[in-house]
Amino acid sequence: MAAHDAWALICRLFAGGTPVLRATLSSREASVLSVLGKAVKPTVVDQSFVLCPHCQQHRAQVWGDGRGGRMCRCPDCGPVAVEANDGAALTLDEDWLRQKMRLALGIESRDGIDDLGDGVWRLGDARRSPVLLARDLARVLHEPALLDRVRVGSGDIRVITPKPSTPRGSPFGAGVEWMALEDRFTFYGGGITLIGAPPSATPVVIDPATPVNGPFSTDFRWATLPDVQTTPIQFTDGQSRVLGALWSFKGEATTAERIMQRAGLDSAKPSDLFKIKAKDKGKPGPAAQHAAYGALVVTQQRAGLYAMPCAAAGKEVAMT
């Protein structure tokens, strides 16, 4: 069971791509840190904001208490003392992951690892089949040129990614094999082992834009708003964090400060992320993002409050 929990934590850290506070780990995740060895390592994160040590629900700004200690002010708990270990964080050693994945797949050591950018790597060739490791399946689905860059003749390509939240069939056509990181590999003996395919595996089709949270996809990167655009609207990482933060308040009118703290961003107000820059004027993507924000968010300018009415009946999501 420890190996299963250890691998689940590795996959979560890889999919996230950012350090996590030790305080946010579940008891099962914390219990396997000693098993993981070199797979994870301590790291330094911005100490100007911490997750509230009391409720662990809100990110709050830290300041000195004038007596050598530190405090934060949680919107729910009020002033809370911050200890040194409240900012302790860890991260996945992704070089370790990529090297162990190469060993598990039998990739020859003479093949180097190519960083293709934005969370995609070519690990090398396994039995003459190029292998891509990606942090997000949607990244590969929406940029098929990545496959063309590594394709060798008519040979097959293997794409390895964490499982998305809404599997709906085979994501690729013939010649591309998708391998779910969580299902096809596991942590064993300090390394990574390839697991054989299930005898009657059923292909799954993935549509990352499928509405899960009201009009939003599970990661708030997409919104389906037929009145704004006939096709799903894709958002940037910052925009998706703002929308997820607004959704988490379940329709309650909230100050810009609380929203941006929960989103983990430094902008003054949510609308900053949706302004159309001069260089983007006339482009359909930024215009659709701006229109979507206007359709989804109600602003009380005099009071400085923001609300997302469609989230009133939604389920609160945890922001990381």
Rank of each mutant, 00 (worst) to 15 (best):
G264P: 02
K250N: 15
A278I: 01
A268L: 13
K250L: 15
E252F: 00
P270Y: 03
G251N: 10
K279G: 00
K250V: 14
K275Y: 02
G251C: 06
K281A: 03
L273Q: 12
G244L: 10
G264D: 05
A256F: 02
F249E: 14
T255Q: 09
L243S: 07
K283W: 00
Q261R: 13
Q239H: 05
A263Y: 02
R262G: 12
A253W: 01
S240V: 06
S271L: 07
K277F: 03
D272E: 13
K279Y: 01
K277E: 14
A253T: 10
A278D: 11
K269T: 14
K281N: 01
E252T: 14
L273T: 01
T255C: 09
I276V: 14
L243E: 11
L243D: 07
D266V: 10
R262Y: 06
F249L: 13
S271H: 06
A245E: 03
K283R: 08
K279F: 00
L265W: 01
T254F: 04
K277Y: 05
V242R: 04
F274Q: 08
E257F: 04
K277H: 09
L246S: 05
S240H: 07
K277W: 08
I276A: 02
M260W: 04
L265T: 06
A253C: 05
G282K: 00
F249R: 13
L246R: 09
L246E: 11
V242N: 08
K250Y: 06
I276N: 02
K279E: 11
S248R: 13
A268C: 04
W247G: 09
P270S: 11
K277M: 10
D280A: 09
A253K: 09
R241M: 12
S271E: 15
V242C: 14
T254R: 13
A268D: 14
A245D: 02
A253H: 04
T254E: 14
D266P: 02
K250M: 15
R258G: 01
F249Q: 12
W247L: 13
L243Y: 04
M260I: 10
R241H: 11
K279M: 03
D280K: 00
S267F: 09
G251K: 04
E252D: 13
K277R: 13
F249W: 12
E252N: 10
D280R: 00
D272F: 06
A278R: 05
F274L: 05
G264N: 04
